[in-house]
Computed example of a mutant assay.
Amino acid sequence: MDSNIPLLGVVAVVALAMGFNYTNGFHDAANAIATSISTRALTPRIALAMAAVANLVGAFFGTKVAQTIGSGIIAQPQGVNGLWLVAAALVGAIGWNLLTWWFGLPSSSSHALIGGLGGAALVAGVSVQWSVILQKVVIPMVISPFAGLVLGYLVMVAILWLFRNANPGRVTRGFRMAQTASAAAMAFGHGLQDAAKTAGVVVLALNISGHHDDESIPLWVLVLSAIVISAGTYAGGWRIMRTLGRRIIDLQPPQGFAAETTAAAILYVAGLSFGAPISTTHTITSAIMGVGATKRLSAVRWSVAGNIVGAWFLTFPGAALVAVLTWWVTSVFR
């Protein structure tokens, strides 16, 4: 244990990590349930409660993602400055989450966290593990939206073909019920991905301070991360929900089911098989676009989609800049 690091400092960083986790929950609640609410498959509060529970359960399956964040993004910093680095990274991620939430833009909390870590590490003189970022962040960041777009389109085409002769009213009612399962699957994937990312940051802080000494994720860290992100999810991010549920396309239950099922499948493959911390926001947004394109290309409001994609590109540098500024401002305390 590093005797130069006070326990209060460790507790403060863990609390800051949980603050980020909470903003992640209400910022990304829309990812799981916006489509179900917009199609009236679920009422808002029932959808939020269901998503919170699914997030809670999903968190316990994301240890690979947690290990990527905790030890794969930056080299482990040392001493008190290492703890300040983690704090600056978290402030950068929280700041970006709050900014994009205010404007109703579904940006990536995951990429905000990684951007914050990268920015803080660079200004603090700590090595950034670029090869890991390329393999587990950049490549999945590029592939997952394309996968969501293409697979969402194909899943929706398959649904249209399978139910081409069915009664439209009966199909709508059936998919409205099916959306309960697909929304829960999406929320489970969000917990698997995003609660685990916060757990990874907590483990990084614990390793820096000497309270932990390997890449394993303590049970109490997973439980705490799961509970906090679930509470944030239940609080709901209504601004972003309106963007995902109504402004990109006008969703019907079969479309909502197709988008949620597609996005959940991509999240599971990335998290369980590769430990890749992909963006739930990018995945569900691109799936919605792909599903909407089966109507006609003009059914997708591409101007709204363009604003969202613009926010995606700004997330890494935006969160990194806030982290850098935080590092400089807090230098007087170190």
Rank of each mutant, 00 (worst) to 15 (best):
M289D: 03
G290L: 08
S303C: 00
W302C: 07
V309N: 07
W312D: 02
A299D: 11
G310H: 09
T326R: 02
S298F: 04
V324E: 05
G292W: 09
F313G: 01
G310Y: 05
V300W: 08
T294M: 02
R301C: 00
W302H: 04
A287S: 15
S303E: 15
G290Q: 09
A287C: 12
L314Q: 04
V329E: 05
A323C: 11
A293V: 15
L325W: 09
A293G: 12
V291C: 07
T315A: 03
V324D: 02
L325P: 11
L314W: 02
V291T: 10
T315W: 01
G290Y: 10
P317F: 01
T294D: 02
L321W: 05
W327F: 09
T330N: 09
T326H: 01
V324K: 02
V309R: 07
I308W: 10
A319M: 06
I288M: 11
W328I: 11
G310R: 07
W328R: 08
T285W: 13
A311P: 01
T315S: 07
A305S: 14
T326G: 07
A320C: 05
R301Q: 10
V309D: 12
T326Q: 02
S286Y: 14
A305N: 09
A287L: 11
A319E: 00
A287W: 14
L297E: 09
W328F: 06
W328Q: 10
V291P: 04
A320T: 05
V329W: 11
G290N: 08
F316L: 12
G318K: 06
W302T: 03
A311D: 01
V300I: 13
W327K: 08
N307C: 06
